[in-house]
């Protein structure tokens, strides 16, 4: 179960990196206004760095056998906060993506949030034991 949850997290991270790269480079995603476009770009830039940094730190710590629970806890909290920001606030300002990659990200996001929360609790439990 833990392996499946970890796989879901990796798949989601890959999809997000691919989507944000596309958003930042493509002209096919069009927000409602110029300022909304800047907001979309700003948040995309920050988030792509968070995902890349988080994935790098997690992979590095996992490979070097260091404690992962705190890293995972922080990443989980930030992931939930970004989800709330998107769901509660940014729904009307960000692009309504029709791209299959964007649909895939939106579809897998709930699964990712559940998976990353499960992985965090499991990791905490394993390291406490």
């Amino acid at each position: 179960m833990l392996k499946i949850a970890q796989a879901v997290c990796y798949v989601f991270a890959s999809l997000v990196i691919a989507l944000f790269t596309l958003v930042l480079t493509s002209e096919t995603f069009e927000p409602r206004s110029a300022s909304a476009s800047i907001l979309s770009q700003d948040l995309s830039t920050i988030r792509i760095w968070i995902v890349v940094t988080g994935l790098s730190v997690y992979s590095w710590r996992a490979a070097s056998g260091q404690s992962l629970r705190l890293t995972l806890a922080v990443l989980t909290v930030v992931a939930w906060i970004m989800f709330f920001e998107d769901y509660l606030v940014l729904d009307n300002v960000l692009f309504v993506a029709q791209h299959p990659l964007a649909t895939a990200v939106q579809a897998t996001r709930p699964a990712f949030l559940l998976a990353v929360t499960y992985v965090t609790f499991k990791q905490w439990e394993l390291e406490e034991a």
Binding site: I38, I46, L70, A73, V77
Partner: peptide, 25 residues
């Protein structure tokens, strides 16, 4: 310590994205 480390990183995210938004706006 764990709690404040978590809060610190979330606050850092707010700080960086907020500053970036101000610079751009």
């Amino acid at each position: 310590d764990h709690m404040f480390i978590g809060i610190f990183w979330v606050q850092l995210y707010f700080h960086i994205s907020g500053t970036l938004r101000l610079i751009r706006s």
